[in-house]
């Protein structure tokens, strides 16, 4: 039973999705849209699973003193702070007790983490967490320069949420992305050292395309750019098509195996 029902569900919904493609009628469309919405809504619940996993794995690393364990506090504090920013916003220009509140809230979190990783002083940490939490609550009650906003997406526009987005997420994101320039160069160097037909072909084609705008080849330059265009338009097109047809078949075959219950690897049973 435990294993049969999921397989039946997969087959049922899979077959429906195939049939609906051929049925333009409104009722088929209607169920189709419902099912797509369902997958989104189930995904929402999965978010909770994800956050819980992140929290637990981080705490576990702290508890077992894994390499670089100390930084996991930073992960959790960053997570908690950004979440609080996302649900709060200023009522005016003044900040009031907002930052002390953030400190107290994060201290609460750290104390709770400490309580779950400690061997002997559980009560002490929980007590401190309680005190910090009390401070938070007092600030929430008496400070009206800022407030929590769950009902509208105001938090996403709040100063600190945007500041974190612009000054932490964007710089790291863009820098990670830009590291690719270095990595691509070292990868090319690696390919350069591999001496076989495949690597040579790959590198030659790469060089021709890479140097297509380069003016330093004198009279050869126009030929480089023409050759690179030809490479991109002709053999590239052919290979892409072969891969796409193959991948398409692979996808179709895998999907069919999944729907027919032949392939159950995704449920842990091969």
């Amino acid at each position: 039973m435990k294993r049969q029902i999921p397989v039946v569900l997969v087959g049922l919904f899979g077959l429906f999705m195939i049939f609906q493609y051929f049925v333009p009628h409104e009722s088929s469309e209607w169920i189709y849209e419902f099912l797509l919405d369902w997958t989104i809504i189930i995904g929402i619940f999965a978010m909770a699973l994800g956050l819980w996993s992140l929290y637990r794995v981080s705490v576990e690393k702290i508890r077992t003193r894994k390499p670089a364990w100390g930084y996991n506090y930073l992960t959790l504090v960053g997570l908690f702070t950004m979440m609080l920013f996302g649900f709060t916003s200023q009522n005016g220009e003044a900040w009031g007790w907002f930052f002390p509140f953030m400190v107290a809230a994060n201290l609460t979190l750290v104390m709770i983490i400490q309580a779950s990783v400690t061997k002997g002083h559980r009560g002490l940490f929980l007590g401190t967490a309680g005190v910090c939490l009390a401070v938070c609550i007092v600030i929430i009650i008496f400070d009206d320069t800022w407030g929590f906003h769950f009902e509208t997406a105001e938090g996403l526009q709040s100063t600190m949420f945007r500041a974190f987005f612009d000054n932490i997420l964007i710089p790291i994101f863009a820098t990670m992305f830009s590291l690719l320039a270095f990595f691509i160069a070292s990868a090319a160097y690696r390919a350069f050292r591999a001496r076989n037909v495949m690597a040579t072909l790959l590198l030659l084609a790469a060089l021709i395309v890479m140097l297509r705008f380069n003016p330093y080849f004198g009279p050869l330059s126009p030929y480089m750019s023409k050759a690179s265009n030809w490479l991109m338009n002709v053999p590239n097109l052919a290979a892409q098509r072969a891969i796409i047809i193959g991948v398409g078949l692979g996808i179709v075959a895998t999907a069919l195996k999944v729907i027919l219950g032949i392939e159950r690897g995704y449920m842990g049973k091969g």
Partner: peptide, 24 residues
């Protein structure tokens, strides 16, 4: 596993058609 089966089944059917048509 039930909700996971639902997601996998729905999207397997969807992708089956989509790729048969566009890629193939």
């Amino acid at each position: 596993r039930w909700p996971l089966a639902f997601i996998v089944g729905t999207t397997a059917g969807l992708n089956f058609i989509r790729y048969l048509r566009s890629d193939f």
